[in-house]
């Protein structure tokens, strides 16, 4: 069952990855912009069971590592997204305060987006990845969170419908 669902979900993630690289990356948005793939993966993690979220995190992390803008070693995003997916789902799955309304999911995704970027920074520091000045890091962190806050509500209906279609869940909003 899980294998079937993941095999259906992977082409969707591939499509989102191509959209991110071919469309979203065309714009140099102020404050660092946003990653549609990251928002998509986090939204799915909120809606899925922990083990599904971990596999989805792993797959999206692979795509993020394949991105030309990934500055760290291959596997860094994979590890972070896998752990983030599992952790988000572990905290959020079955909690009606989060699942019952769109605002709860958006808030959860934005906060997760912020902490995932911090996790990337910290692991990057351990692996010797240069990340810039403190001021620039803070600007990018808050900029990306604001963008996630703006983009998530627009994308949420599409993402949840796709999730419901594949996982046959009642999470469509």
């Amino acid at each position: 069952m899980l294998t079937r669902q993941i095999s259906i979900a992977t082409p969707i993630f591939l499509m989102i990855f191509v959209i991110q690289e071919a469309v979203v990356s065309q714009f140099r948005l102020p404050g660092g912009g946003f990653s549609i793939l990251l928002i998509f993966a986090l939204t799915w993690a909120v809606l899925s069971q922990p083990e599904v979220a971990a596999v989805i995190g792993f797959a999206s992390g692979i795509f993020m590592d394949l991105s030309q803008s990934a500055s760290g070693p291959f596997g860094q995003w994979t590890l972070i997204m896998l752990l983030a997916g599992y952790a988000i789902s572990y905290i959020g799955y079955g909690d009606d305060n989060i699942h019952a309304n769109a605002i709860g999911i958006v808030f959860f995704v934005v906060v997760a987006n912020f902490f995932v970027e911090i996790a990337y920074l910290l692991s990057g520091a351990l692996l010797g990845v240069s990340t810039g000045s403190i001021g620039q890091i803070i600007t990018t962190l808050f900029g990306m969170s604001i963008w996630a806050l703006l983009v998530s509500p627009i994308m949420l209906p599409i993402f949840t419908r796709l999730h419901a279609m594949i996982f046959d869940s009642r999470s469509s909003i």
Binding site: F27, G32, Q68, S69, S71, Y120
Partner: peptide, 13 residues
Amino acid sequence: SHGSSQSFSQTLT
């Protein structure tokens, strides 16, 4: 293409 800033890097293609 301009690289995404999700990895705090500044690249373009």
